[in-house]
């Protein structure tokens, strides 16, 4: 059986908001390591990998490894019924056909339980090979979200180029073109406001902005985002979830034929 208790229930609400538009149905994997998920979008262009480590929960019990198939839209509907300050407890059984979400108000004067039907989902687990990335950019997540939103009003794709000058986000569309360059900037008041560029060699890749915009729904989870790029490899857009783990999005590039 699985039993997990998360005092900061809002984290789980935010996690759902950051994946439900990308993936409809997914298997959550429960193990001693934690509560995790790996799923592709329906076009198999993007992949999301989520890990919430067991140590991050106030209480975590998982007797054996098993998976629970969930419709993420339905799960989001249920979690939206939890208050932002609520403590969330999840209970499920190996082979069970439902999962229970319990929401407790901080003062314990309101306790709700919601039972959601599970589903059988055939999904392939993909092996994600360790890769040496040509460039790793860390920047404020709000800044990255703003750039993706702004560029998507001009074009459908973004070219992300990292050179010694900085990281450049470019697009073009029917009405014109746009280029936004962010330079390394470590002279900021708070470390989370810094832009840090580690470049082994210059890299330039093209991606669909629709997916990038979807990834930025994870911005409330972390003040910073890390973008890892290598030629001819999917980009990794990672948001760390404080004390608990991460949500990583992999997006296949567009490549000239």
């Amino acid at each position: 059986m699985l039993e997990l208790r998360l005092v900061q229930g809002s984290l789980l609400k935010k996690v759902l908001e950051s994946i439900k538009d990308l993936v409809n149905d997914a298997n959550f994997d429960c193990s001693a390591t934690g509560f995790s998920l790996q799923a592709m979008d329906s076009s198999h262009v993007a992949l999301v990998s989520l890990l919430l480590r067991s140590e991050g929960f106030e209480h975590y019990r998982c007797d054996k490894n098993f998976s629970m198939g969930m419709n993420l839209g339905n799960m989001s509907k249920m979690l939206k019924c939890a208050g932002n300050d609520d403590i969330i407890t999840i209970k499920g059984d190996d082979g069970g056909d439902t999962i229970t979400f319990m929401f407790e108000s901080p003062s314990q004067d309101k306790i709700a339980d919601f039972e959601m039907k599970l589903m059988d989902i055939d999904s392939e687990h993909l092996g994600i090979p360790e890769a040496e990335y040509h460039a790793i950019v860390r920047m404020p997540s709000a800044e990255f979200a703003r750039i993706c939103k702004d560029l998507s009003s001009i074009g459908d794709t973004v070219i992300i180029s990292v050179t010694k000058e900085g990281v450049k986000f470019s697009t073009k569309g029917d009405i014109g073109t746009a280029n936004i360059v962010c330079r390394q900037n470590t002279t900021v008041d708070k470390p989370e406001e810094a832009t840090i560029i580690e470049m082994q060699e210059p890299v330039s890749l093209t991606f669909a902005l629709r997916y990038m915009n979807s990834f930025t729904k994870a911005s409330p989870l972390s003040n910073t985002v890390t973008i890892s790029l290598s030629s001819e490899l999917p980009v990794v857009v990672e948001y760390k979830i404080a004390e608990m783990g991460y949500i990583r999005y992999y997006l296949a590039p567009k490549i000239e034929d």
Binding site: S43, V45, A46, I255, E256, D257
Partner: peptide, 14 residues
């Protein structure tokens, strides 16, 4: 023309 690749072009079932 840039062709959209799929994740499965890069990562294989584990």
């Amino acid at each position: 023309v840039n062709q959209q690749r799929q994740i499965t072009n890069f990562f294989s079932p584990s």
